[in-house]
Amino acid sequence: MRSAVVVFPGSNCDRDVEKSLLYMETGPVDMVWHDEADFRHAPDLVVLPGGFSYGDYLRSGALASKSRIMGAVRAHAASGGLVLGICNGFQILTEAGMLPGALLPNASLRFICRQAYLRVEQNDTPFTCSFKDGEIVQFPIAHHEGLYYLPEEELSQLEQSGRVVFRYADRSSGEAGEAYSPNGSLHGIAGIVNERGNVLGLMPHPERATLQGLIWGTDGRGLWRSLEEHFGAWEGK
């Protein structure tokens, strides 16, 4: 699997994603500056990493969504390529219209950095195929604007089409939903895919639960492993 990590001015989880992918030995990782017109090597996976692209000025993700490289990201997604937006990357995807909804300021109006337990709601996506259905995993969160919002009608469409992939959950009971949102996210939504299922945006950080010996576990490996499995099967065909 060849990955491209887009680096916007102000991205600060770009190197963390690179470190995690290299740690998982998923294949070559290209760091791509926002100002490029296209990817130099055709990627299998494009990652829009977390951080504060353009300082979160105007609105989180708003300026980055207009970057030059986004044309190539759209084209990649349109041709069925995989796109993963983590945290600020998720915000960029919603601002770019590649995913529905918006990420609003947390209900507490404070930045929140802590462990977050998630229930895997769909394990038939390329990003989650190695997880068990309904599995509870821990990916840390670190954001100020993570309240997922979508008007009611569209929200029920999103739910009905099974596009909610991760939902905030209670670690012990396994229950998931709005009551467990650390940020007030509607329906406890932590991550969603587009209609075609090839673009995933999520607020929690799988790359922060990947390396050995650091705080907050290694559950994030499941997401990278899923992608590897997905491409392994694909390459095998």
Partner: peptide, 24 residues
């Protein structure tokens, strides 16, 4: 300290709340 990102750069072995903090 929950308002502080204690993990970015992926070096944190022990974050806030302990007697020491530790990084790789």
């Amino acid at each position: 300290w929950e308002q502080y990102d204690c993990q970015v750069q992926l070096r944190t072995v022990r974050g806030p709340g302990g007697q020491v903090s530790a990084i790789t």
